[in-house]
Amino acid sequence: MASAREEILARIRNAKVPAAPQVVRGYNRKGPGGVEMFAERVADYRAIVHTVSGVPEALAPLKGKRIVAPQGVPQEWLIDGVTWLHEPLSIEDLDRADGVLTGCAVAIADTGTIVLDGGEAQGRRALTLLPDYHLCVVRADQIAASVPEALERLESTRPLTFISGPSATSDIELNRVEGVHGPRTLEVLIVT
């Protein structure tokens, strides 16, 4: 008996689907973009947004809290008065933390999205998932105008997380409610 793999592939070939015409990409691959549009669209999904010129001054509200700081967070962000939690951290450690401070890989103005790729100042995925509060720093030059522009800047084989606002659901009467399993508060600092 042929293996499932061989049989499925044979059935596909047997269907003799004709070749498709060349894909026409007539849609916009670029967009107006910009800090303002990004800020407005992140806020649309009830994330808290601030546009700042320096990061350390904006971190004062974290004082007195236990905040996860992933590998690669700049030294100047680690202000006094905050209990910074560094790797290695267990699931329980993360669950008990008050929040997490990260950078990002790319942001998307058109959709108000931040994208994490596990690189510098972001850490592994669990770090931004278990704490109930996520503070994300976005540099203006990281903001891509459109989804196509953002994908072009990303490395697809890294573990990626696209985040657009805090955790939400539309499962009750198809209306959006914020706050389910992911962080219930998302705060974004845009550094210009």
């Binding site: 669209r41 989804v147 997380t161």
Partner: peptide
């Protein structure tokens, strides 16, 4: 869901 983007998209390889 009628959103510009859904809250979370995960990609892994």
């Amino acid at each position: 869901t009628a959103e510009r983007m859904n809250p979370y998209t995960s990609v892994w390889t």
